[in-house]
Design a protein around this nucleic acid. Structure first.
Lengths: 207, 207
DNA sequence: GTCTATAAAGGGATAGAC
DNA sequence: GTCTATCCCTTTATAGAC
């Protein structure tokens, strides 16, 4: 691993534990095993550019996990539930550290660091596109794929935060169960005509 | 509104836009219309104590919204969807500011500020308990109520972050739709319990 | 209680030797 | 490319006048 990657990796590690503002250059230099001058040699943009690289790096790594975890399950709905269970396990094993620096940094800096927000949007956009394409290959309609991706990502990011605060895996299990149910309902309702007329209210969810 | 509340409110406003570490005492003093010395007079614990007060304040305010928004819908599932639509609208109207400082601060400081993590856990715990009780009054079984609360909170917190980064309401609509489907499946799959008691005259909006 | 001035410490970034 | 020393600025917190 070259120096650039090592620095970005150390930054990612700090970002998900402390966020962007609380992470200092000196602390990063210690964590990366490089003096401050070296940091600015590799990243002329300083702290901000290192954080951007860290977000892109972890973003690319995370999206690979989706097919990796879901391909193991023939039943897509069951796979979703397993994915959340896996995330819960990882959280607990790492002492309830936030698994996703992208979420933390976005929440923190979207209004104050436009450059970082754009990087976060770019990463999240990749997640949505890649994930959407994957779910389509698993048999979901395109609009359903997009809905599922957004639901999974939202639930994951939120569960990270709740689990981190409460030190409990319950958010993951609850989120996993609800989305599993939704995906299962899509698979059984293959016929185009919406037969889901059980609930009485109109389903105009347009826009 | 007395000075304590005004300071805590200004802090909450800054927390959800910038998070904890990036918010300075001087900036807070300007926002609250009080000099720094006054801040330390009202909150001897300084920045940390003000943040704690801000989290408790917004936590208490937010949980009141749950019955307020859901009581308007006889169909609980439809109410859930409307709740997410409302959150999406608020986000857009506020220029995609993060709606929940509790989530931001938790993600940021859970490992570095034990006091704030405990306050966040206390607030989230109140959300879960209060919300769970509410869903029970709407006819859900106790275990289902707990699942729904965790799912709603996770999806909301995550959608806040994704929407903030992408500047899009899509995460809310997707999350709302999935949980709506889950709640609807609970209501129709309840043969043993006598038909779900819709919100009859008595609006149990208890403490 | 309100406000000003300042202390003590740490931040990001840079220059320049090696 | 690596590392050290330093500049300048901001931070939190406090002391003490009003």
């Amino acid at each position: 691993m070259d120096t650039d990657e090592r620095i970005a990796l150390a930054m990612a590690e700090l970002l998900r534990k402390q966020g962007y503002a609380a992470t200092g250059i000196n602390q990063l230099a210690r964590a990366a095993g490089a003096p401050t001058g070296s940091l600015y040699h590799h990243f002329k943009g300083g702290k901000r550019e290192i954080a951007a690289a860290a977000l892109r790096q972890t973003g690319a790594a995370y999206i690979q996990l989706l097919p990796l975890l879901l391909d193991a399950h023939d039943d897509l709905a069951a796979g979703i539930e397993a994915l959340f269970a896996q995330a819960a396990e990882d959280m607990r094993d790492t002492g309830w550290a936030n698994m996703c620096p992208v979420g933390t940094v976005t929440a923190e800096t979207a209004d104050t660091e436009p450059e970082l927000r754009e990087v976060a949007a770019e990463v999240m956009g990749t997640w949505v596109e890649t994930g959407s394409r994957y779910f389509t290959t698993r048999g979901l309609a395109e609009t359903d794929s997009r809905t599922v991706v957004f639901a999974v990502l939202s639930a994951l990011e939120g569960a990270f935060v709740l689990a981190r605060g409460l030190r409990s895996a319950e958010p993951f299990h609850a989120a996993g169960r609800t989305i599993k149910t939704y995906v299962a309902s899509l698979c059984t309702e293959q016929p185009k005509t919406p037969t889901r007329a059980r609930a009485q209210s109109g389903k105009r969810t347009g826009t």
